[in-house]
Design a protein around this nucleic acid. Structure first.
Lengths: 188, 188
DNA sequence: AATCCTTTTTACCCTAGGGTAAATGCATCC
DNA sequence: GGATGCATTTACCCTAGGGTAAAAAGGATT
């Protein structure tokens, strides 16, 4: 969120659409409206013409966690859901009356899959990159160090043969001493 | 890091390179070697054939913070430095003897800029997306809530007119009460 | 002005994790 | 075996932030 400058201007976007003969849908939402909800498939890449949006998700205790804020000329989507078939866990809430340009999955493809094989690959890389980052942001944002440690053991046990506990601790965002304490606690 | 499956297989990668007549450089690094250092421009998108890598950066107190771990068939780069001209702050350290395939910036371009305008745009979006996420991961990972709050005020003062303190607190990763306490403290 | 509702602040006590420093463990090298 | 060096654990005390609950402060609305 909050790139120093917007990714791409509205003019750019409309220019490209023109060249390709695409027409973007528009969406107007009222203040307070949640226009994309968790478990709904995210069908669009959203460009915010005007207004202000909050993306949030529910943590393990059911609390609303703000994942992102996004304003004029910014773009948002739920990467897992828009790029892949994965379930959307993000809620998109308008914090003020907002107008959006919608780029559908088909249009996105038209824009990006124009031709080359390699292009598809490169884009795939970028997307995966984004999705992993997104996962990691959520993880650091809300999960406890202990929980993240357990997840790491479960999903990537080999890491403990490769990296030392100091590295792992800082990966988890804690000191080595804290990690040591967590390990002791978990050993009953 | 640690996608459930590798982004792209080595075979894919070499296949595309073949089609385009590209040849990737190889790099072999010893255990313990830091083969990309902060302030050095990151010239490659790295594909790990074999081995294990740690990416770390120095926080405000000068502590090494592990940003990422990456192993066989994974890809890494320093997005700010590889995609843009920004200074690299990441150090790439081999935790075991590692062999890498290097995709230079020129090759990356050859792969991705084959033709369309729109493709460039789409890729730009993905890259920006990644870079912002990357920034946010680092921020949540090491900066205190108070520091992040101050940064938010400085960089996006308008947010305080748009979102309420509850939203902002959870964006910062803390409770509304804690934010309130921080605000009180800062008001002297 | 009185009421209702939402947002924000305070207060109390509790817990996770930090900082410093020392102690232990484990390899390696002589 | 002793010495050196790194990784890990423990211990002590401290701080940031959490949980619950209540109080205060703003808006709206009538």
């Amino acid at each position: 969120m909050f790139a120093a400058e917007p990714y791409v201007s509205k003019e750019n976007l409309l220019g490209w659409a023109n060249e390709l003969g695409l027409e973007f849908k528009k969406l107007a939402v009222q203040k307070g409206e949640v226009f994309l909800k968790e478990k709904q498939r995210c069908q669009y890449f959203y460009f915010i013409e005007e207004g202000f949006i909050r993306l949030y998700y529910l943590d393990l205790q059911g609390h609303e966690i703000t994942h992102w804020f996004s304003g004029e000329n910014m773009m948002i989507t739920s990467p897992f859901s828009f790029f892949k078939e994965e379930t959307n866990i993000l809620n998109f809430e308008a914090l003020e009356t907002t107008s959006l340009l919608l780029i559908s999955r088909e249009q996105w493809k038209a824009l990006s899959e124009e031709n080359e094989n390699s292009n598809r690959a490169i884009r795939r890389l970028s997307m995966e990159f984004s999705m992993q980052l997104s996962r990691r942001v959520m993880s650091i944002h809300t999960e406890s160090a202990e929980y993240r440690y357990l997840k790491l053991i479960k999903n990537h046990p080999l890491i403990f043969q490769k990296a030392n506990l100091g590295h792992i601790a800082s990966y988890l965002g804690i000191t080595q001493q804290s990690l040591s304490r967590i390990r002791k606690r978990l050993a009953h």
